[in-house]
């Protein structure tokens, strides 16, 4: 099939960016969008041009490295799918796709479609853990966890830290990411001792990093590749008053 890619090109944060358009004839429908970028990059390299920079690694939707906007949608049109799992067969022959990086104050641009998301690591460092050391753990069966409780905690623990929720939010809020972590640990007995402190610490860090606040537009939930529910954001708001 034929496809046109209009890609945001920006050498570095302190230089202006602009779109560059590439038409690809004859690409397989069975390729992922990232594989199409690989193919384009091979052409650019052979013709002496600078290849497009984008983040990726596992290419199976689990590491959270990849992520950019496809026609304004974080991770593209397919629900519950990170962009490495987006295949060309989702698009019509001749489609034109505009690719933009995540844009958020807390995610400074690096190059082209790459941005820096280390703010997420600092949110976790602020309190996204259970304070336990190696060799101090009690028997794992000493604290029973009901099946439903374990399943619910698991469903929030699956966040891959991709940043789509932030990128799709008009306030660039990290609420879904933070709520997911607070809900993961807050639903388990192991997470109880530090529950209040954790909620305070991470939410203060969120403000310090320059993430915006939540105004319940629910775009985050719609783009989250792990389908984490925005209900956890309301849960988090109750949690703060805990």
């Amino acid at each position: 099939m034929k496809i046109t890619l209009r890609i945001w090109r920006q050498r570095s944060a302190d230089q202006p960016g602009k779109y560059q358009t590439h038409r690809l004839e004859n690409v397989s429908r069975d390729l992922s969008l990232l594989e199409v970028l690989d193919q384009l990059n091979e052409q650019l390299i052979s013709s002496g041009e600078r290849p497009v920079s984008f983040e990726h690694d596992c290419r199976e939707g689990i590491c959270g490295s990849c992520g950019f906007l496809v026609n304004g949608q974080a991770h593209g049109p397919r629900a519950a799918t990170s962009v490495c799992q987006l295949y060309l067969r989702e698009f019509n022959d001749g489609a034109e796709l505009t690719l933009d990086p995540w844009r958020a104050k807390a995610f400074p641009p690096i190059q082209d479609l790459m941005v820096e998301r280390s703010a997420f690591d600092r949110l976790i460092a602020a309190g996204g853990y259970c304070s336990t050391g190696t060799g101090q753990a009690p028997d794992g069966n000493a604290l029973p966890v009901g099946r439903e409780q374990a399943t619910s905690a698991f469903s929030t623990a699956t966040c891959i830290g991709c940043g789509a929720c932030v990128a799709s939010c008009r306030n660039a809020s990290a609420s879904l990411f933070v709520a997911a972590k607070l809900a993961h640990l807050g639903q388990l007995p192991q997470g109880q001792p530090e529950r209040a402190r954790r909620a305070d610490a991470i939410q203060s860090q969120m403000e310090a990093e320059g993430f915006g606040s939540c105004s319940s537009n629910l775009e985050c939930e719609a783009v989250c590749p792990q389908e984490i529910s925005a209900d956890w954001i309301s849960w988090m708001h109750r949690e703060k008053r805990h």
Partner: peptide
């Protein structure tokens, strides 16, 4: 065996039986 205990203490949400055991 100690590895599992360690991970549980960190909050790893392992699958559980209805009774709550691993």
């Amino acid at each position: 065996s100690g590895i599992i205990d360690q991970c549980v203490a960190q909050g790893v949400p392992f699958a559980r039986e209805y009774g709550g055991s691993l």
